[in-house]
């Protein structure tokens, strides 16, 4: 029983690592306020993408390795909004609204597919995501977009690889209700926005449908006896995850200031999954607090490794460490899950 109260191994390692990096960061005189400001930014960037995984995990459909599908829906919503001249905060809200129908439709198809490959969702989802991203590459080239800030100026047809959002809605949410406390910038609008999403999810989990979803994930056969339509509820969770992933992508682009098209979303699932796993949910159910803790730990690690890597004159190192950490955490979780299921 005692074992249950210990945090999982990766969490311990990452926390130790963060403490070491924090020590180094203090030693090279990086002001704490800038670290905190950057942490807020990175949380806004990634929080919703990580949260988007939760509905699928809780319904038993597994970790959403097909997150790029939602990301692509978000990209589609954004370029369409930009094409029709969306600007400022309304433009940003509109981009989410426009992407939702795409996310719902693709989520429904994707959910149907996942129901047919039950038990092996991870690998099927990964390659479905890859396929969607690569077919959308064709779409970005041939789609009839005309906005001069989005298409190539000379020689090439199609949308640019990265579309700057300056002049559209760059940081419109970040600047909303933003205030300063000393040197620390508090992006109250963004925090409020994310808070509302979290609250909605919380209240959803209290509704009848939400409880059915959690029941399906915790004990499928028991849920089925009690009249839960497993296939339907799983599909609903996939749609929810996909919609949240598309909204998360819009928030990411708004904060980052660029829409990244083509192969950019290809690997989007792995860091998000890794962050969620790092939050340390032990059972089949993931709570919002796991996701928040995970994303804070994961992003602090990345944030703190940046200045240290620069100090060592090897700026690529932060990205390399992130790559190693991401895959290590997923591999650890895979092995642990197999152990729990008694497959070994």
């Amino acid at each position: 029983m005692i074992k249950r109260y210990l945090p999982p191994l990766p969490q311990i390692i990452i926390i130790v690592f963060i403490i070491i990096l924090l020590g180094l960061a203090i030693k090279i005189d990086i002001p704490a306020s800038s670290l905190i400001n950057d942490l807020f930014i990175r949380l806004i960037l990634n929080c919703v993408l990580v949260i988007s995984l939760i509905p699928m995990v809780n319904s038993g459909a597994g970790l959403n390795f097909g997150l790029p599908i939602g990301a692509v829906a978000g990209l589609l919503g954004m370029v369409m909004t930009a094409q029709f001249g969306g600007k400022g905060l309304t433009g940003f809200i509109l981009s989410i609204a426009v992407s939702i129908p795409f996310a719902v439709v693709s989520g429904a198809v994707y959910g149907r597919m996942l129901n047919r490959v039950k038990g092996r969702e991870e690998i099927a989802a990964t390659f479905t995501g890859f396929s969607i991203v690569s077919i959308m590459c064709l779409f970005w080239v041939v789609a009839p977009f005309t906005h001069p800030q989005m298409i190539w100026v000379l020689g090439r047809s199609g949308l640019r690889n990265t579309i700057g959002l300056r002049g559209f809605w760059e940081k419109s949410l970040y600047n909303l209700l933003q205030f300063k406390a000393g040197d620390i910038i508090i992006p109250a609008g963004s925090l409020l926005f994310i808070g509302i999403i979290l609250l909605c999810l919380y209240f959803f989990s209290r509704t009848r449908t939400g409880m059915m979803m959690n029941a399906a994930g915790e004990n499928e056969s028991f849920a089925r006896i009690n009249g839960v339509d497993i296939a339907k509820i799983r599909k609903l969770s996939v749609i929810m995850s996909t919609v949240l992933a598309s909204a998360g992508t819009c928030i990411y682009a708004q904060q980052y200031g660029f829409i990244e098209l083509y192969s950019a979303p290809l690997m989007a699932a792995f860091p998000a999954i890794s962050a969620l796993l790092l939050g340390g949910s032990s059972g089949k159910r993931v709570f919002l607090r796991h996701a928040l803790l995970g994303v804070i730990l994961y992003q602090s690690l990345y944030l703190l490794s940046l200045p240290v890597a620069n100090m060592l004159l090897v700026p690529e190192m932060a990205e390399i460490i992130r790559m190693i950490v991401t895959s290590f955490i997923i591999l650890y979780a895979l092995a642990k899950k197999s152990e729990e299921r008694g497959d070994v």
């Binding site: 690998i123 990964t126 792995f270 790559m323 290590f328 591999l331 497959d343």
Partner: peptide, 18 residues
């Protein structure tokens, strides 16, 4: 990780590349 080798090998590939 028997039964989920393929997803594991993809992640191993990323770890190895790192």
């Amino acid at each position: 990780v028997k039964g989920r080798e393929m997803i594991a090998t993809i992640i191993i590939g990323i770890l190895g590349a790192g």
